[in-house]
């Protein structure tokens, strides 16, 4: 159980970064950390004690495999994470060129 809680703490660390940091790059890193923690959580969920990687090599017992579905999901989530990170960085570099800083407080219209 402790692993899941640690994993969720990692998620909260990322959330903390997104909420409190004022640097555009740090906010992006915070989102990446949240995404990592979710990848880890999914894989932890699918793990089975003494299980082996889901690759068939000469009639392994089926019950010994770890769950392949979370692995397929995580592969997708990795791609989504890469895509969003790259998009955010593209905006960040553009914002830096316009303002000369990564400070989010300089960015005016960011109030609800």
């Amino acid at each position: 159980m402790i692993l899941y809680i640690l994993c969720f703490i990692l998620f909260l660390v990322g959330l903390y970064g997104v909420i409190t940091r004022r640097n555009v790059i740090k906010i992006v890193l915070g989102i990446c950390i949240m995404e990592y923690s979710l990848n880890l959580l999914l894989i932890l969920i699918g793990y089975v004690d003494e299980g082996v990687a889901p690759i068939v090599v000469r009639e392994t017992m089926a019950s010994k495999f770890v769950d392949p579905l979370p692995q397929a999901m995580v592969l997708t989530v990795i791609v989504i994470g890469l895509a969003t990170t790259a998009m955010l960085l593209a905006i960040a570099i553009r914002v830096y060129k316009k303002h000369g800083t990564f400070d989010i407080r300089e960015i005016k219209n960011l109030k609800g």
């Binding site: 998620f11 959330l15 997104v18 555009v24 906010i27 989102i31 949240m34 995404e35 979710l38 989504i80 969003t84 998009m87 955010l88 905006i91 960040a92 553009r94 914002v95 316009k98 960015i107 005016k108 219209n109 960011l110």
Partner: peptide
């Protein structure tokens, strides 16, 4: 400027929502 900032804000909040 305005569009980029709006998009950045949208992306951060949208990214958190997705996660």
């Amino acid at each position: 400027r305005e569009e980029l900032e709006a998009s950045f804000k949208y992306q951060v909040l949208g990214g958190v929502a997705s996660l």
